[in-house]
Computed example of a mutant assay.
Amino acid sequence: MTIAEAPVATSETVAAAASARVDLDLIAELVTPGSRVLDIGCGDGALLALLEERRRVDGRGIELSQAGVNECVARGLSVIQGDADSDLVHYPDDAFDFVILSQTIQATRNPKTVLTELLRIGRRAVVSFPNFGHWSTRYWLGLRGQMPVTSNLTHAWYDTPNIHFCTIRDFVNLAEELGATVETAIAINATGQKMGMKMPWWFWNLFGQQAVFVLRR
């Protein structure tokens, strides 16, 4: 199959993929049992609930939307309303063992500042994000001449919450610029499978639909 012949995402496939957050299970595997965790942009609390159930963490959360906070509280989670771009400065250094930013960094106004704060307040920073360098995104831009709407980037350009798209290579460059050490890097393909760890960055950048990184200072 050539790229031009590849199937285009429909509303049904987009919805199915959006509901299948395979990065959550991967993040849970990376978090040490019993650790102190802050989940930033925790949404409805699905990851935080998973971590408390599976890893017995001491979990806290920050969520921008009131609806998300309400859902988290209804689950019995310790979550407050807050903004990653402005409220992380109130946390002391090394306040948590793991600080998690799952599928959120591309929706922040100042990703570099947010990542700097993650590395300050957490001994480890876990970041997952959609890869804008994936071949399906390149297909939409290069051959269709349109901003992509794919199984991993589900909003049209005019209503997307994502304001800073990046590729896996971009994120690695940012980590290097901040002097962070990449402890773990995982690329996830379109079927939700982990890609070979020994594959070069360009291969991950082309075929990895999502990525999960563990960073430390």
Rank of each mutant, 00 (worst) to 15 (best):
R144W: 07
T154Y: 08
G142H: 05
L153Q: 10
Y158W: 15
I168C: 11
V149N: 04
P148R: 04
E183H: 10
H134F: 06
N162T: 10
R144E: 09
S151R: 14
D170G: 06
V127D: 02
D159W: 15
T137I: 10
R138L: 08
V182K: 12
V149P: 00
V149K: 06
T160G: 03
A125Q: 00
P148S: 03
P130A: 04
N131Q: 05
S128K: 12
T167H: 00
Y139A: 07
E177A: 12
S136W: 00
R123L: 08
L174G: 00
T167K: 04
V172H: 13
G133L: 01
N131W: 05
T184I: 15
V126P: 00
T167N: 03
L141S: 04
Q146D: 09
W157Q: 14
N152K: 13
G145Q: 13
N173H: 14
A156T: 15
E177L: 11
A180K: 08
D159F: 14
F132P: 02
N152L: 10
T137L: 00
S151T: 15
V127T: 06
A156K: 15
Q146R: 14
N131Y: 00
W157K: 14
A187L: 12
T150K: 04
T167L: 01
V182P: 06
W140Y: 10
E177R: 12
V127S: 04
V149Y: 03
A175Y: 06
A175M: 09
A180I: 09
L143Y: 10
Y158G: 03
R169V: 15
C166T: 12
F171K: 01
F171L: 06
R124K: 15
A175R: 11
H134N: 07
E176R: 15
L174V: 13
T150C: 00
E183F: 01
L174N: 04
P161S: 02
A180E: 02
T137C: 10
A180Y: 04
A187H: 08
L153M: 13
G142T: 04
A185K: 15
T160Q: 05
T150Y: 03
Q146A: 13
E177C: 05
M147D: 09
H155R: 14
A175N: 08
N162A: 11
M147H: 14
P148H: 05
